[in-house]
Amino acid sequence: MHRTYSMRQSRAPTASQIENPPPPSSSTKAGRLFGRSNFGHNFRKTTAGAFGPDLAKKLTQLVKMEKNVMRTMELVGRERMDVAQQLSLWGEGCDEDVSDVTDKLGVLIYEMGELEDQFVDRYDQYRVTIKSIRNIEASVQPSRDRKQKITDQIAQLKYKDPNSPRIVVLEQELVRAEAESLVAEAQLSNITREKLKAAFTYQFDAIREHSEKVAIIAGFGKHLLELVDDTPVTPGESRPAYDGYEASKAIIQDCEDALTNWVQSKASVRSNLSVRARTLSQRRKAKAEGVDLSHQDAPLQGERDGWVPASQHGEYGAEDDDDEEEEVHNGESRGRLSAAAEEPAAA
C-alpha cells in the first residue's frame, strides 16, 4: 500500500481564505542566526526592552515574547507532520484495517500540522499590529524627553540665577514643547486604542478558525476509528476481510470538504452574552445614545483586504533592529508534501 501524507492534491483556496485573504508569511519563518534551539528564545526574552526608549520597553518585551510563542507553534506544526508520517509508516506492517486507518489518521494529523503553520501566519498579523503601537510609543518618547529636559533646565536656573534672562527663553521653548507633546500624546492615545482592538481581533479570529478546524479533524478522526474491528478473537481464528478502503477515503473527502467550506460567519461555537453582560456592555455618549458592544466579534474584513506588509509601514524601515538575529534566510521550504496518486491496494 502506498502511504499518503497530505490531505489535498489541489491547493485551491478555501472558503475561509476567500472570505479573509491569508496574510503574508510570518516573519518568524525566515532563517535564523541561532537556528532552532532555545538559545534564540532566551536571548530575545532577556534582551527585550534592554535598549530603546523607556516608553516602548514593556511593549518591546511583549513583542519578543510573542515571537517565542510563534516559534513554539512552528515547532508544534513540524513535529505533528513528522508524527503523522511515522504513524503511517508504522501502520504498513499491521493488519489491513489497522494499516488503512493509521494511514488515513496520518493524513488528518498531518493536516493539523499544516493548520498550525497557517495559524502562525495569521497570528503574526496580531504581532505586527502590536509592533506598530510600539513604534508610536518610541516616536513619542523624544517629545517627552525634550519637555522634561527644558523643565529641568528652568528649575536649575531658577535655583542658581533667578534673574537670568534665559529663563524667559526656556519658558517659551517649554510652551512649544508642551504643545508638541500634547499632539503626540493624543496621537498615541488614539492609535493605541485603534491598533489594540485590531490586533486582538486578528488573534481571536485566528484562534477561532484554528480551533474549529482542529475540532472538525478530531470528529472525522473518531469516525475513522469505527472502521477498526476491535472484536476479540481466539487463537487461530481469523478476522473477516477488511472492506473499509472506500469508506476511509470517503471520510477523508468529507473532512476535506468540511475544512474547505468552513467560514467564520458560520462558526459552530458562539459566544452569546447574558442579559446582564449585554446590559453592562452598553456605553453612554454625550446624548445618552447607547453603543452595544455585543456584536463586535465580526472579522476585520476591510483590514484584511487592505493588509500591508510590515516593511511598508512608516516606522518599519529599521524596526527589526531588535530582530537582527533572525534576518539570515536559509531558504527553507515550507511546502506541503503532495498526496500520493496511487490508490490503496485492495485486500
Rank of each mutant, 00 (worst) to 15 (best):
F119I: 00
Q141H: 08
D145W: 05
R144E: 10
Y126W: 10
A138I: 02
E111W: 10
V107Q: 13
V101S: 03
R134Q: 15
A138T: 01
I133G: 01
L108G: 01
R122S: 09
L108I: 14
I133L: 06
R146C: 10
I136C: 10
K147V: 10
R144P: 05
P142N: 04
Q125N: 14
V128R: 12
K147E: 13
P142W: 06
N135Q: 11
R122E: 10
D97Q: 15
T102H: 07
V101R: 02
E114K: 08
K131M: 11
S132Q: 12
S139K: 15
D103C: 11
D121Y: 01
G106V: 13
D121V: 02
L115P: 10
L115M: 06
R146V: 15
K104N: 09
R122Y: 11
K131C: 05
D124C: 02
D97V: 15
E137R: 05
V128P: 07
R127L: 03
D145V: 07
I130Y: 00
G106R: 03
E137F: 03
K104F: 04
I136P: 10
V107D: 07
Y126M: 10
Y110D: 15
E137N: 00
F119Y: 07
P142H: 05
V128H: 06
K147P: 09
D100G: 05
R146A: 14
D103T: 15
A138L: 00
A138S: 14
V120K: 01
G106A: 05
E111V: 01
V98G: 06
D100H: 15
